[in-house]
């Protein structure tokens, strides 16, 4: 390093300077991974082993699964969560992408102003609309149905904004050409826009599915009863008892996180795009 003739730092020199970065990032990575790793191992141990601080895998997984399915309607809740989230994703994507498309490609002063107003909904806290929405849903006799779950979250300013922003990549010329070819306005949307915007749809789908799967306050309010409950509700109820079986609880927690973890690993790029979707 006293060698001043060297203008270009060597590779090993650069890497040596990065050692603190490697150490810091390794520590942060371990902290990030450990609770999840431990969730997996705890699901294979007895409650006592978990309490005693056993970190590695045990052989109690089958027993925990038997106990879990005996005391809880696990697969029913898994199906419910999956079904509600899937319906919400499809419906929400259709509604919000149509709106984003309309706001961007047919935009005029009136529409821009309306969009500005819709954005204000981002500031409305969920807990504030809880009572009026609960009253509304129960008057419409929709409590304990998939409609109760999905309706309040079907249209969100975030999703509309994401599609509106990304619609800028859709060439106007294509629309004009399609019109000359005699395609209807809605035809252009389904036949031209939809195939071209696949990556935006993928990102939006991941984020909507995750949000729907994770939602807790609202389902807890409108989905009463064991046959309609969701996974987050099921595991929350499990942890409320006096004598909590930790191994069994962690297996439930694992089941609740499994779909989101799978989505994360398979579609990480789309997930990252989805959460930052409207920033560009």
């Amino acid at each position: 390093m006293t060698d001043t003739k060297k203008k270009q730092p060597t590779v090993s020199h650069i890497q040596r300077k990065l050692i603190p970065s490697y150490i810091f990032l390794t520590i942060m990575s371990l902290i990030s991974v450990f609770p999840l790793f431990w969730m997996f191992t705890a699901a294979t141990n007895t409650s006592l082993e978990v309490a005693q601080g056993k970190i590695w895998f045990g052989n109690y997984l089958a027993e925990n699964y038997r106990a879990l399915t005996a005391s809880q309607d696990l697969w029913r809740a898994m199906w419910n969560s999956f079904f509600y989230a899937a319906v919400q994703t499809v419906a929400s994507l259709l509604i919000c992408s149509l709106a984003g498309y309309g706001f961007e490609l047919y935009h005029d002063k009136g529409k821009d102003r309306l969009f500005g107003v819709l954005l204000l909904a981002m500031m409305v806290p969920q807990v504030a609309t809880l009572i009026p929405l609960f009253t509304m849903i129960s008057r419409m006799k929709m409590l304990n149905t998939v409609w109760a779950f999905i309706i309040p979250a079907l249209s969100t300013p975030f999703m509309i904004m994401m599609f509106r922003q990304n619609s800028r990549n859709f060439p106007i010329d294509t629309m004009e050409a399609a019109r000359i070819d005699g395609l209807s306005e809605i035809g252009i949307f389904f036949r031209m826009y939809f195939p071209m915007m696949k990556s935006t749809y993928a990102a939006a789908a991941v984020i909507t599915f995750m949000n729907a799967w994770n939602s807790y306050m609202w389902p807890r309010t409108v989905m009463k009863g064991n046959d309609v409950q969701t996974m987050p509700m099921l595991i929350a109820n499990m942890s409320n008892g006096y004598a909590v079986d930790y191994g069994m609880l962690m297996l439930g927690v694992l089941f609740c996180s499994l779909p989101t973890i799978i989505v994360f690993f398979v579609l990480q790029k789309q997930f990252a795009e989805g959460i930052t979707g409207s920033v560009k």
Binding site: L25, M28, S29, S32, V33, P35, L36, W38, M39, W213, N214, Y216, M231, P232, I235, A236, S239, L249, M250, V253, L254, C256, S257, T260, I261, V263, F264, F265, Q268, F271, A272, I275
Partner: peptide
């Protein structure tokens, strides 16, 4: 480092 986001919300609270 991004991985914790994959944990369901109620799940991580219980972990």
């Amino acid at each position: 480092i991004f991985l914790p986001c994959a944990t369901a919300l109620v799940s991580y609270a219980l972990i």
